[in-house]
């Protein structure tokens, strides 16, 4: 699929949204709500706060979006604005209680299946340990790679790393999995479904 054409399409929708078209809002909302909620809920577990933040996100980009005439990528603009709004809200909420507690967080727990001990492969064992011990930025970086069409450059701007470093991180993890390809026997008929 042509990624560029996709961008142009979202630009048309974006302009329709900005001119007050409700159908365009619904298109954007339906396409991104799952990814945005999933992303936001990794920064805060406060669901009410997150829903407020998503509401503010749409009102903000509708009211002030003209500053950014044509966002380079609507997706990037949505994610980065949501992140900014969530942190602003967390700051307001914690102003009087524990401002020092406001450190960046990103919850991403990979599910470990029950047959953990059955994994004999050292590479995979290492991978599991690595996944358990990823730092905040790497967790966010991986999530964005799996859940969005953002480029390495855009993800890099998110986590304040160079695009090269982002790519390296993604490939390190996926290489373990790739090297493991072919080692795991798949049941006959796996390809038939």
């Amino acid at each position: 699929m042509d990624h560029l054409a996709n961008k142009e399409y979202w630009q048309i929708i974006w302009e329709k949204f900005r001119s007050g078209n409700r159908g365009a809002f619904e298109t954007i909302y339906n396409e991104f709500i799952d990814a945005l909620f999933s992303y936001g809920s990794r920064i805060t577990s406060d669901k009410a706060l997150l829903e407020d933040a998503i509401q503010d996100l749409f009102v903000d980009i509708y009211s002030y979006g003209s500053v950014l005439r044509k966002p380079e990528s609507l997706e990037y603009y949505l994610f980065i604005t949501l992140k900014r709004i969530i942190y602003k809200k967390l700051k307001e909420k914690n102003r009087f209680s524990h401002p020092e507690h406001l450190v960046e967080q990103f919850e991403l727990t990979f599910e470990i299946e029950a047959n953990e001990q059955e994994i004999a492969d050292d590479c995979l064992k290492k991978l599991r340990t690595e996944l358990q011990n990823l730092d905040v930025k790497k967790r966010e970086l991986l999530f964005l790679k799996f859940n969005s069409g953002l480029t390495y450059k855009e993800i890099g701007r998110f986590v304040k790393q160079s695009p090269g470093a982002v790519k390296k991180q993604v490939y390190r993890l996926l290489n373990t999995i790739r090297n493991n390809l072919g080692k795991t026997p798949y049941p006959p008929g796996f390809l038939d479904n």
Binding site: I33, D34, R42, T109, F110, E111, E113, L173, I177, L181
Partner: peptide, 13 residues
Amino acid sequence: QIEDHLKYEEKKL
């Protein structure tokens, strides 16, 4: 492979 090793809990509305 990705489903086996890189699955995480999904939070959804």
